[in-house]
Design a binder for these strands. Structure first.
Lengths: 340, 340
DNA sequence: CTGTTAGCGCATTCAA
DNA sequence: TTGAATGCGCTAACAG
């Protein structure tokens, strides 16, 4: 039992039940075109009675567009992306859309595959934390609305919701400089993306503004996106430059690696070393000392992304690109203090 | 520019390009039915040349089923669910399916709405951490394959991937009893779901097995799913029962609240109080002392869910239900030690 | 205001 | 082995 093909009621069934034509059913249920109020009620009742659920695929085929939105992120296990997706989904759902979520693991191939999928599904838009500019271009060529989230790849055109990475990094660096630090190391993984580039620029700008000379050797580039790599980079840096008094980790994964290395070496934070990070994720407020961070209010960030997309779908098709800048905010906790 | 409707190539276009009929295109590209190898190549080349992407909606309409799988979870911001979804997505993607992710916030209404959506989309299956049994029933009535993940609502039928909550709770409780604790409090939020009920049962069973009398007053029920509520419950419990030497938090959110309250009161862990939790999430290994937990290997857990569903889709339509039990594993860290 | 007709793009009969 | 015809379920013209 239970198995087999379930013949689900169609619009024609509703039509029969209500004694009208299929097109009237469509109009009555969708509120498009004219329908006599009395008829509309009858159709609604009939539909409810037989449990009619309009077939989304038929509708999308006919309309050449669906109520689906593609969301393409790097890593759902990273709370930054998970929160972003959570914010997006919340707004989409409230607006009657649903989210196709694809993880690309920071891999351009996978990203391109997902673009194919989204094109095939005729999603009405895509929100993407881009890895390669090809995907974004490809999306556009397919006539799909795209909102770039968190960073931009290549093209500077089109809708985007971005954090002000330069300002965020300045906030942190200023904070550290203001405490009296002069040897502040930056741990960063990439500077090809707008996020990394901006954070590096902010770090530089803050030094410049304060008139503090910057030692380029204190900028450490991690090669991978794993916390373990960041731990190694931290070890190396601390070994080579024992005079460093503060560490600035450019994202939450790097911060994790740095924190672990610091714990392993039993370095007293903030007495011997201050630590600050970009992006506030839960563990940073759970550990002692709590980590000073720049938060981007990630869930709201995601909401903004969805709002920008929805706005574009609501007729603003040929409007100017919307660029939203999310203000980063410094959260001072106990991991930063004046140098000894 | 860029705007307007993009006329995407259809199978007919490919047919024209390759000098064959549309049906041959379909056969050649899908590998169904007979096609001359030479023709197949020609069609493939033509398709690639003009950038043909089969319309997923048309295909789903025709096939009465899509390559979409609905995933319905409680809260993407909770790392447990995020990891679960990450595991599911990874396996689905590798198998050529995609994930429609819906958050129900533990709300039965939202859950039911999502069921409607999934039915409308003709998803080929749904993986759900159920809130209400109605949704699961409704899904079945629509002839949709469902895999219940982590817990079951009402019905004991059908495919499911479940943690052995009773055993996991026993593992923790035994561990604490073995250390010599006799006054172990349990912080739990619900016991209507199979997860909560199982964990409570395991806590009881371990006491029984050890011949240690259990004080029912040490079982504290949180009313909400927020960490803050758990913090309050912890405060109350600690106030009422200062002789408690160990705390067992039944999930990661409760553990967070408990941990925060413990920090606030500056209670020495594990010297004055031991703390253990169900489900291992990142902050638990970052804080000092690290929290002793039972891990369910959540990402793999998610993978198993997807595998069970895929297996069902692969012809096992009328097969016996698959029930997978995921073995919990005790991870002993520094938050548990013999009572003072 | 409502019904008839047509077609979205595909996969599958059935004939050839 | 291939092509022509058909219909999945829906909505939008167009007549009435």
């Amino acid at each position: 039992m239970s198995g087999g093909v379930v013949r689900r009621p169609t619009g024609a069934d509703v039509a029969r039940e209500a004694g009208v034509s299929p097109s009237t059913v469509s109009r009555a249920l969708n509120g498009t075109g004219y329908t006599a109020p009395e008829v509309r009620e009858r159709v609604r009742a009939a539909a409810a009675r037989i449990g009619y659920i309009p077939d989304a695929n038929a509708r999308s085929l006919r309309n050449r567009s669906s109520r689906s939105v593609g969301v393409l992120i790097s890593d759902l296990r990273n709370p930054f992306y998970a929160d972003l997706a959570a914010g997006i989904e919340q707004v989409l759902r409230a607006a009657g859309y649903h989210m196709i979520l694809v993880n690309d693991d920071g891999n351009a191939e996978e990203e391109l595959l997902a673009v194919q999928t989204f094109a095939a599904m005729r999603v009405s838009g895509v929100i993407i934390t881009p890895v390669s500019s090809r995907s974004v271009k490809s999306l556009r060529e397919h006539g799909i609305n795209v909102v770039q989230a968190d960073r931009r790849a290549g093209t500077r055109h089109g809708d985007a919701v971005l954090g002000d990475n330069e300002q965020g990094a300045e906030l942190i660096t200023e904070h550290l400089l203001g405490l009296g630090h002069r040897r502040i190391a930056l741990l960063i993984d990439e500077t090809k993306w707008t996020t990394g580039a901006g954070r590096l620029a902010g770090y530089r700008a803050a030094h410049e503004a304060a008139g503090v000379p910057l030692d380029e050797k204190l900028i450490s580039f991690t090669t991978s996106f794993e916390a373990e790599a960041a731990r190694g980079a931290t070890a190396e840096l601390l070994g080579a430059h024992p005079d460093v008094t503060a560490l600035f980790a450019a994202n939450n994964v790097i911060a994790q690696g740095a924190f672990q290395e610091i714990q392993r070496r039993r370095i007293a934070v903030p007495r011997k070393l201050s630590l600050a990070a970009y992006d506030d994720v839960p563990w940073m407020s759970m550990v002692r000392p709590g980590i000073t961070t720049v938060t981007q209010h990630t869930v709201s960030f995601g909401k903004r992304c969805a709002e920008v997309l929805l706005n574009r779908l609501d007729g603003a098709a040929e409007q100017e690109p919307t660029i939203v800048h999310v203000q980063p905010e410094l959260v001072v906790r106990a991991s930063t203090a004046p140098p000894r």
